[in-house]
Simulated scan of single mutants.
Amino acid sequence: MHFYATLLADGLLQPCAEARGLDAPPAAPVPGQCWIVGDSPAGAWAGSAGALALWTVGGWRFAAPREGMAVWIAEEGLVARHVSGAWRVGAVAAAQLVIDGEQVVGPREAAIDEPDGGDVVDGEARAAIEAILQALRAHGLIDAG
């Protein structure tokens, strides 16, 4: 009983799923392995769509996802988070990005106007500025404007 409880605690406190979206259980699971069940489960997983399926020495154990629950998906090397009734993979929500104690990305700022006018137009400088603006927009750091 103690081993079973330890497996469940490990599987739910720091969940690491082998993969997600499977509708049928794997053929040879190892105790402690976990999967995120697909949308149309069959066999031993029937009726457990979207749940965490944890294999134990006593068979399959299922845990319904809770809002905000995060699971590492080993196959993809990404985190899946359960948000608004669905698993979202690889999406990160944050107010800012801090690296080595320094904020490098914060909330999105207003759009920056394209370069325009001036007495002397430097084509290379304008092209460089436009490329920088395009990159900032592509990364979502400024609005398209």
Rank of each mutant, 00 (worst) to 15 (best):
G90R: 04
E18H: 03
A94I: 14
A80W: 10
A95V: 01
I112Y: 06
T56L: 07
D39Q: 05
R20S: 13
A49C: 09
G38P: 10
D113N: 04
D116F: 12
M1K: 12
R137C: 03
P26R: 04
G145Y: 08
L78K: 05
A74S: 09
L136T: 06
W60A: 01
L8W: 05
S48G: 03
H82Y: 15
D122K: 00
A9E: 15
V30A: 11
W35F: 04
A138M: 14
E124H: 04
E67C: 02
V71N: 07
T6P: 08
A110C: 08
L22T: 00
G58R: 07
F62W: 09
A19G: 05
A5I: 00
V120Q: 02
R61F: 02
W72L: 12
A63L: 09
V121G: 13
E130F: 01
L136R: 09
R137F: 03
G90I: 14
D113T: 07
P65T: 07
E102N: 07
G47E: 09
H82W: 00
G50T: 00
A51D: 15
A28Q: 12
A17W: 00
L8S: 02
I132N: 15
I36Y: 05
E102Q: 11
R137N: 05
P31K: 04
A95F: 12
L54R: 10
D100E: 15
E114T: 05
R88V: 13
L78G: 12
P25H: 07
W72I: 13
V92L: 15
R126V: 12
R88N: 02
L7T: 12
G85D: 14
Q33M: 13
T56G: 06
F3L: 14
I132M: 12
G117N: 01
P41E: 02
E114H: 01
G58S: 08
P115A: 02
G11L: 00
E109P: 04
R81L: 15
A17V: 00
A53G: 12
G90T: 14
R81V: 15
L133F: 05
I112E: 10
A64Q: 14
D113W: 03
G145T: 04
A63H: 08
L8D: 06
G123A: 11
A44T: 01
E75G: 05
Q33G: 03
G43S: 09
A144Y: 13
L54V: 15
H2Q: 13
G106F: 10
G90Q: 12
A44Q: 12
V37Y: 03
A27I: 08
D39W: 02
V57P: 11
S48P: 01
H139Q: 15
G68Q: 09
S48D: 02
W60C: 00
A94F: 14
A131H: 13
E124D: 03
I99G: 01
L12N: 10
A93M: 06
R20I: 02
G106I: 01
Q33D: 10
G11R: 00
L7R: 02
G106T: 05
R61K: 00
C34D: 05
G21Y: 04
E75S: 06
A125Y: 08
V120M: 01
V83K: 09
E67F: 00
P65D: 04
D100I: 10
L136C: 12
W55E: 00
E124C: 04
A9P: 10
G123S: 12
T6K: 05
V120Y: 09
E109H: 09
A51M: 14
G140K: 14
A5N: 14
A53H: 01
